[in-house]
Nucleic acid binder design. Structure first.
Lengths: 204, 204
DNA sequence: CTACGATTCTGAAGATCTTTCCGTTTCGGG
DNA sequence: CCCGAAACGGAAAGATCTTCAGAATCGTAG
């Protein structure tokens, strides 16, 4: 193993203030997005973090990058949840597990106003870093879909990509439907719509 | 009947240049939206029309108003189509008629890039003028839904509002999915998603 | 045909937001 | 404690939306 004591230009100890500022920025972004929606100005994020706008761009070169930073935790939570729900020992039936996971997916996407639309416009690019950062979540979710298909309750001619698109569409609709009051209303509307959709995706 | 020869302050002959400029603006908006998407700058619209930006705002106080002007023709076409499809004499079965109409609805909403998103964010305000301007189209479409429900193929607990929101979300999703190549790809993707959705909205 | 009043048009300016840039500050190893 | 590299701050440029006051234009009346 190469010695860590000979740092090169690409391998340098990360300054403590850099890491700290990155955390501050993510926390500020979460707070501002929750308050003003996912389209809040980056100036507001910088101000809330007590930093300059230039620092935002140093850490997150684009708005998309900042969004990705905020969403990574959500994707990881969804991945973990998918793994838990797929655990054969304590898990619910395959069909219920998939339903519950999609419900959670939609809850995460309606967390901030405008988030579903942002994710939508970026999730299906393939090349986008956001797309890559959720690959593991998609894989874990795909396992749930596969299980449901093998158990015979879900259509066989349904791929994970389409399923996520439909869930995304429902999140988008639920967000619009519930007006400006986020929370229970959106969740309830989303549950109804998801119920309709899943009925259509089940085997006859 | 009141004489037209005694114009009051509120009833005055519309200047020819005003009407002409309004048409120029709508034509320019259609061209620019088709070329650069529905989020094109209003400055571009003004420039294309050979008018100043202030003139855009005189005719259409908000971006939403301009969008409405552009969409009126689309809504009317959809209303006519709904009436045709509901015509008992030559119409297809209720279920197929509704499906076909929703397909057309989605085609119209994917005409310009970004249009579905704009409509989505504005259509469900109730108070918005865009929402009002499509009331007749909604009514005509609702007749199709009602027919499908009475014929027993569609669920009874489904309202027009929810159905349109879902169709809107699918248009949006399809648009994002198919990348930047509008046309057949988007239509095809949308057809798939709509098919899945409608399966869920049908009666068992 | 011309003059007049009301309406409309223009384009510069203010406001907001995104993004870049460089002088200044800060960190942490030596 | 010193120094160089890296990071920070915030002004400024660019883009877009929107407003406004003065200039231009139209339609009518004389």
């Amino acid at each position: 193993m190469m010695a860590r004591s000979v740092p090169t230009s690409t391998d340098r100890a990360v300054r403590t203030d850099v890491r700290r500022n990155r955390e501050w920025l993510l926390a500020a972004a979460r707070a501002v997005f929750a308050e003003k929606g996912a389209n809040a100005s980056l100036y507001d994020v910088a101000k809330r973090a007590g930093l300059g706008t230039g620092t935002v761009y140093r850490h997150f070169p684009t708005r998309e990058a900042l969004l990705e930073g905020v969403l990574l935790d959500h994707f990881e939570a969804l991945r973990v949840s998918a793994v838990d729900l797929a655990d054969a020992s304590a898990a619910p039936a395959p069909d219920e597990a998939l339903t519950e996971w999609l419900r959670q997916f939609i809850v995460h996407l309606t967390e901030y106003r405008g988030l579903a639309a942002e994710v939508m416009s970026v999730l299906h690019d393939g090349a986008s870093s956001l797309s890559l950062s959720c690959l593991e979540m998609r894989a874990a979710g795909a396992a749930l879909l596969c299980r449901a298909q093998q158990s015979g309750t879900m259509r066989a001619d349904l791929d994970m990509s389409t399923l996520l698109k439909l869930a995304n569409a429902i999140a988008l609709t639920a967000e619009q439907t519930s007006g400006h009051a986020a929370g229970q209303n959106a969740s309830h509307a989303a549950d109804d719509l998801l119920g309709y959709l899943l009925d259509g995706l089940r085997r006859r």
